[in-house]
Design a protein around this nucleic acid. Structure first.
Lengths: 206, 206
DNA sequence: TTACCGACCGAATGACCGGTCGGTTTTCTG
DNA sequence: CAGAAAACCGACCGGTCATTCGGTCGGTAA
């Protein structure tokens, strides 16, 4: 493997697990076996390494979902939502470092001044939101999902998963033990129930 | 106000908005007007400042919820859940810096080796989860909330709000414009609907 | 008056930081 | 094989970092 790849891979791990500022170039140099100068031969500065990593993360996540949808078909929109949730949680485990990096604050701080960085981050979240939105819209055409704002509900679902993943990453709670309840809760949240029943006495508050 | 309070207040802002490692003691010194030595007279090191801040954050959040429940009463458990969600989102805006700090990675990293730090963080999340759990259990006794694991559903609700707040903090999406949908989605997720209807053809997948 | 206190100061310290540069080795190409 | 280009090296630089420490000062108790 080329030295550049080695550097990128080690930096992904270090920036994710230790943080960007908390990782020194000398440490990256020691771990990769590359001399200090070699790193700066491949990347113009430390920040440039992070941008390259984020580009990779973006491409990997989008590619993973593309592949998933190429292989998988769904009976209903609601089933598709469940599939996406399941795959998202799987991916958060399989790409642990990458998801951890996306939960760190530094990339978002950098995104405020660096358009390229912002572009990569937005691409990830737009991709994910779009997928959920499509699934919800599909569910609304086949009546497996009720009448609600597809975009906003997609964002709520994504927020929920994002929060679950953060809890797991930050060692607050284990996402795995919540899996069944997440699926059940999402189905209850989405399912078509518009029979205009009158027994739900608090409907007028919504 | 005592110099120690000034230091703590400025450090809360700096550690939240810039990050712990990205904030230097000289910057903290300049902003507060306290000499470098003064800061180390009040705190044994930089980390000790963070611990003190987390202690404050914990106490403030718990106190805020205590006050809220002293003033507010609810007709049903489901109404209580809505109230807690609303208050949580209000608090995330009113205590922006404090919530931002709770979304940074450094405190959780520190918690792995520092039991005091871990204690403060756990206290915050246990408090919040307990509140949701109580509301759900109340809802189950008055039949406004369906039959589901109270603890796990509480964690899912908290994850959802946590994710929403993160999206807002990291400038990914505005939580305010999602408020009505969050309430509606939560009510759908929780509401008692166990009429054993057969028309939801995917119930067997849950 | 004296003796002591805690709050406060800011220069000094040494470790470490990101980044540079001149030179060497390896790889590619004609 | 020659020579150019790319990869690589590590000593070195100026600057910043958290922390230390000798000392000043106003209050207060004996």
């Amino acid at each position: 493997m080329s030295k550049k790849k080695v550097i990128l891979q080690a930096a992904t791990m270090l920036f994710s697990q230790k943080g960007f500022s908390e990782t020194s170039m000398s440490e990256l140099s020691k771990i990769t076996g590359a001399a200090g100068g070699t790193i700066f031969h491949h990347f113009k500065n430390k920040e440039d390494i992070l941008i390259s990593i984020l580009k990779n993360v973006k491409e990997q996540i989008i590619e993973e979902f593309d592949r998933y949808f190429r292989e998988k078909k769904f009976d209903t929109g609601l089933d598709m939502v469940e599939g996406v949730i399941t795959f998202y949680l799987y991916l958060a485990g399989a790409m642990e470092d990458e998801f951890l990096l996306l939960h760190r604050h530094y990339p978002y701080k950098l995104a405020e001044t660096n358009p390229v960085c912002r572009g990569h981050l937005e691409a990830v979240y737009n991709c994910l939101t779009d997928i959920f939105e499509q699934a919800i819209r599909l569910g609304q055409t086949d009546s497996s999902v009720g009448d609600m704002s597809a975009r906003k509900t997609a964002l709520i679902l994504l927020s929920m998963l994002d929060g679950i993943v953060r809890f797991k990453i930050y060692n607050l709670y284990d996402a795995g033990s919540l899996y069944n309840e997440i699926i059940a809760a999402s189905r209850r949240m989405l399912r078509n129930g518009h029979q205009e029943r009158g027994e739900t006495e608090h409907a007028e508050n919504i």
